[in-house]
Structures are given as structure tokens and as C-alpha cells.
């Protein structure tokens, strides 16, 4: 059996099981959908919850985006270290040193604190 056919078949099986759960719930459950207010521990909502949510760690997302790009080079590097010797290791850890400088700077600037 072709590998990606097997994977697609498994994903299909997962989807089928999930639809079966919803179908079974439709059959055995109490009919009719209950429209409710969002749960605010007994209170009444004064506005829509879907709003411009002021995320307090937005600086971390930017440092994360930049730092994450270094992962792209590390996966193939892991394959070739055995054959390319110390040159590859020195190069990669120089590259990592650069990035740790950035993380150190971000920490000193308080980017990892809730804004």
C-alpha cells in the first residue's frame, strides 16, 4: 500500500470516527439546540468577547519568529554533521551564538515580561 495513501486513509478514518460521534450524539441526545449566553460565572456579558485582545507577550512572538528561522537550518545540519566533521559544528554554533545574542538583548530589554 502506498505510504501517503495509507496516511490519507488514516486521516479519513479519523474524520469518519468524529462524524460518527456527532451522528450518535444527534441520535441519542436530547433534540434542539440551546442558545445560551457565554458563561461569565452568572454575570451578563456587556460586550462581545471577540474583541481586539491585547496580548501581553507580543514582543516574544517577534523574537520567536526570528529565532525559529534558525530551526530551518538545523534539521538538515543534524544529518550532515557525522560526515562533514568539525567545520559544520563550528559554523552552526557560530550561527547559534549570533541568535543567543539576540535572545540576551531581548531579555535585557524585558521583552519576556508581560507588557
Amino acid at each position: 500500500m502506498e505510504t501517503f495513501v495509507a496516511v490519507v486513509a488514516l486521516a479519513g478514518l479519523g474524520g469518519a470516527l468524529i462524524t460518527a460521534v456527532y451522528a450518535l450524539s444527534f441520535l441519542t441526545g436530547v433534540r434542539g439546540t440551546l442558545g445560551v449566553a457565554p458563561f461569565l460565572s452568572g454575570g451578563v456579558p456587556r460586550e462581545h468577547a471577540l474583541s481586539r485582545f491585547h496580548v501581553r507577550w507580543y514582543a516574544v512572538t517577534m523574537v520567536f519568529l526570528a529565532f525559529d528561522m534558525e530551526m530551518i537550518f538545523m534539521y538538515p545540519w543534524a544529518l550532515v554533521v557525522a560526515s562533514m566533521g568539525t567545520m559544520a559544528v563550528v559554523e552552526m554554533f557560530l550561527f547559534l551564538g549570533l541568535l543567543l545574542l539576540g535572545v540576551l538583548y531581548a531579555w535585557r530589554e524585558g521583552a519576556f515580561r508581560w507588557a
Binding site: S41, G42, E47, H48, R52, F53, H54
Partner: peptide
Amino acid sequence: LAMAERADDRDGLKLDVLHLPFGPVL
């Protein structure tokens, strides 16, 4: 239902404020 209103913040970004009652049933 109203959309959330904006208000100033210690962080300098004027973004939406939600009024959440942490009430008796919790």
C-alpha cells in the same frame, strides 16, 4: 450586544477592554 470599547493601557496601546464579572458560580 455592544462591541468592546477601547481604553488606554500601561503599555501605550489603546485596545479593547472586556468587563468580566468573576461571580458566584465559579
